[in-house]
Design a protein around this nucleic acid. Structure first.
Lengths: 239, 239
DNA sequence: CGACTCATTGATTACTATCAACCCGCGTGG
DNA sequence: CCACGCGGGTTGATAGTAATCAATGAGTCG
């Protein structure tokens, strides 16, 4: 099942992309691929603390819960995103496949050694966590102060931006109008990510649709007519 | 204004505590102290991206905002907490003194060099960011799914746990009953941290008070009669 | 002693949750 | 082949929590 890192589809954008050519064989040997079906945990109960991974395809969700079952999705991992907690003492939060997922797995301790060896890698890794932290804080703003419609619009925007650019990097979206994508989350998962109920999510999608900002195709498919107006919906003043 | 790291009150718990004795003189020379009055930014506009710091005394708050003024407090920094973003590209979020604050400042690039030199420091630093991320995610759960009363109780619990243990480390709170502390945040700041309005915060404090879980002393002072029941309030089932 | 800020308290509104019914696509099995 | 059940999604009616609007109280500083 091993494939060459040299041919990896997401290497350019992933953490490992900063490694010098010479190290590719090395990481090629210490990595393995894994497919996970939608709905299943990415790692085994015990395993989670001991591995790290990069998403090759699909979307993974991270969630935390209260004893009574209330669950909050706290993050999404799209292709090229890094998953895992080098040096951490606490166990990682539950990470599951939202869609079918393919990941590139590393033993955590071997990855830690790699971090020690390659200064570049270490810096990019720190940058990556910092971005995760920023994203979480952005989402706190959403959960604390945005209206239901703004929340749904924000999520659509996120999915659009992370899904749409399939290969183009460094450039702004060339065609600002008329892009489409499939939501990687069910209504239940969207609700858990947005701090809403599935009914409210459904109603807000409808509203955005009747407002003409998006089109909905058989549930999961979303067509964004105009990114700018969707962005406006994502943070228009409460008034 | 320079003082010896050897005599630093929070060294045992702070990041710099992991450095060997031999490095103390070195960091002593590269650090400087700064006092910031409540309500003022910790760093200048330009300065923020170029420095890192450790909180010596007081509490700092981190916040993000929407264009229309809606503001979310996304984190608090208590004494011994680290502030700053080594290797980051994005500018840091606004960090202000909630109470009067005293910090120990380092130039960011010198701190980055220190991270490269000392493996121990690097690992603890990564652990620290990871904990920040976990804390943010915990708070997302609060903002997404907790009731107003649970939110207020959760904040009190946080302040209690970060304020109460003045020197004792490694031990559970010995006297579980009858501790008191002063809230480091105004009602407005509490509301911005909890995703509520100041009126609701005030009402919930009142409710917790009449429920007998806490006592309120002239606004900022909080007496916790029983930590366990406060913890219960912080995540009791919605029913 | 006002002017001001911060907090409390009360009355009312409204956004979103809850409760409930229904639809749709799909796989099963009589 | 179609009744049936089931999960996921939509739509509607109602209710409740917290926001909003509004007024009062307490503490501080000129």
């Amino acid at each position: 099942m091993r494939q060459s890192c040299r041919a990896c589809s997401i290497r350019a954008r992933a953490l490992c992309g900063v490694l010098p050519e010479g190290a590719l064989d090395q990481i090629n040997r210490m990595s393995r691929r894994r497919r996970v079906a939608a709905g299943r945990a990415l790692f085994g109960e015990e395993e989670g603390a001991g591995v790290v991974a990069t998403v090759l395809a699909g979307v993974a969700k991270v969630s935390v819960s209260l004893a009574d079952g209330r669950t909050q999705v706290v993050g999404l991992h799209f292709p090229s995103d890094f998953i895992g907690r080098p040096f951490a003492a606490a166990p990682p939060p539950l990470t599951e496949a939202a869609t079918d997922v393919e990941v590139c797995l590393f033993e955590r301790n071997r990855f830690e050694a790699l971090l020690d060896e390659h200064r570049e890698l270490k810096q990019h890794f720190v940058r990556q966590i910092t971005e995760d932290l920023d994203a979480a804080r952005e989402w706190m703003l959403l959960l604390g102060h945005k209206t239901a419609e703004e929340r749904v619009a924000s999520l659509l925007l996120l999915c659009l931006d992370r899904t749409a650019p399939p290969a183009c990097a460094g450039l702004e979206a060339p065609t600002d109008a008329g892009s489409r994508f499939d939501l990687p989350l069910s209504r239940t998962e969207m609700a858990q990510y947005l701090g809403l109920t599935i009914e409210t999510v459904s109603r807000m999608l409808k509203r955005l649709s009747t407002e003409g900002v998006i089109g909905i195709e058989h549930g999961r498919g979303i067509r964004v007519h105009d990114r700018a107006s969707l962005a406006a919906c994502a943070e228009r003043a409460a008034a």
